[in-house]
Design a protein around this nucleic acid. Sequence first.
DNA 1: TTTTGATATGACCAAGTGGTCATGAGTGAA
DNA 2: TTCACTCATGACCACTTGGTCATATCAAAA
Lengths: 216, 216
Amino acid sequence: MSEEAALSTFRHLPPDKQERVLTAALAEFADQGYHQASLNRMVAQAGIAKGSLYQYFPNKEGMFAYIFQFALKLVRRTLTTVKEETLEENFFVRLEKSLLAGVAFSREHPRIFSLYLKIQFDKNVPFREEFLAAVRRHATEYFASLVRRAQSRGELRPGVPRDATLFLLDAVFDRFLQAVAVPALDVTLGLHQATDAAIHQHVRELVGLLKDGLMA
Amino acid sequence: MSEEAALSTFRHLPPDKQERVLTAALAEFADQGYHQASLNRMVAQAGIAKGSLYQYFPNKEGMFAYIFQFALKLVRRTLTTVKEETLEENFFVRLEKSLLAGVAFSREHPRIFSLYLKIQFDKNVPFREEFLAAVRRHATEYFASLVRRAQSRGELRPGVPRDATLFLLDAVFDRFLQAVAVPALDVTLGLHQATDAAIHQHVRELVGLLKDGLMA
DNA sequence: TTTTGATATGACCAAGTGGTCATGAGTGAA
DNA sequence: TTCACTCATGACCACTTGGTCATATCAAAA
């Protein structure tokens, strides 16, 4: 069966069945990573026969690609929303709100976030380059637009190196979300079990450090 | 065969054979991650029979544990060396040198670094918690000792929040090394193919930002 | 030369993998 | 009732995995 025909079959399924399959697949990929993900477990979880999976998707890769497109759409939408909603605010306030939005996203869609993390260091995942490039491009472009606007408003110290700034923001942002999601990486802040208030406080402190530096 | 007896057999092997086995195992684990690593490929690469592997190690986990201890020793030694060699320098100079030492390490031992990265987000790797905790504890303790000394010398702005500072340093450090090792994460700086001079420049800029902040 | 103990070997095993396919069920049109 | 078409099913396939074990090799001791 051709790839398009298969996907079309899937999309004509009753919505609840589509959701069962999608949920099971995302869970399996997110928990196990691409290669360890087992189609047998997936179909058991979704309550369908193995053969049915191949009525909906051309193969494991195709299934993965479908999920990954789905995830990318969500990420894009979230970034756009935050960017627009904070457009008129001060740069450092925007940073705080962006971080909090990131935390909210990773809590609302933990599977998607976990999948993203798993892909980062596994060279053998299909579409990995595409996927990572897309996510990083969106993130970088997001920060770049914040920085441009901040500079045009004089909210940044003149002469800060642009690329280093983008790198710094990206690094802090990414690592913060990782610490929220992965206890083992969360040695210093205890973010994993933190209340919202504690997280707000950490975000404020962190952005404060970025703003004023360690030696002012 | 008991675990100790097996390891003792391995250690009595001719050094070149030990090295062949160790190299092949590290390469396989680093390239493929724990689960995808194939013992069949390992023995083929090392030029030994599969049964021999089980004369040296109790099983796959045991082999992994051995390699991981070996790697941890290297990391510990490197951190200690850098700490001692820069003891008398200014805090921000120490940061620069630490970053450069990290880059040097990941270039000298790319397999070890790659293994570390792979473990970070794969929940199912044996000893993962131990391993990550050990590495993160060493790194955090390293930065903490730098910060303490800096504060006692008045090199830090009074009142900087301690935990947020440690987090910030850890985040930047880690991400910088990741960008050097993984092209897909290296959107902004182009570190992957960079000359030593370019890397030095980036390190200076980054530490400069940490020092003076984005808005001074 | 024989014996002994450590080490080497690869055919073999059960279990699990992604993927296939012949068969059957269900449904609306003719 | 028959036909045509879509979708469902699970036994089955070739292949790989981590791990085992009976057997062979070999050196040193006796």
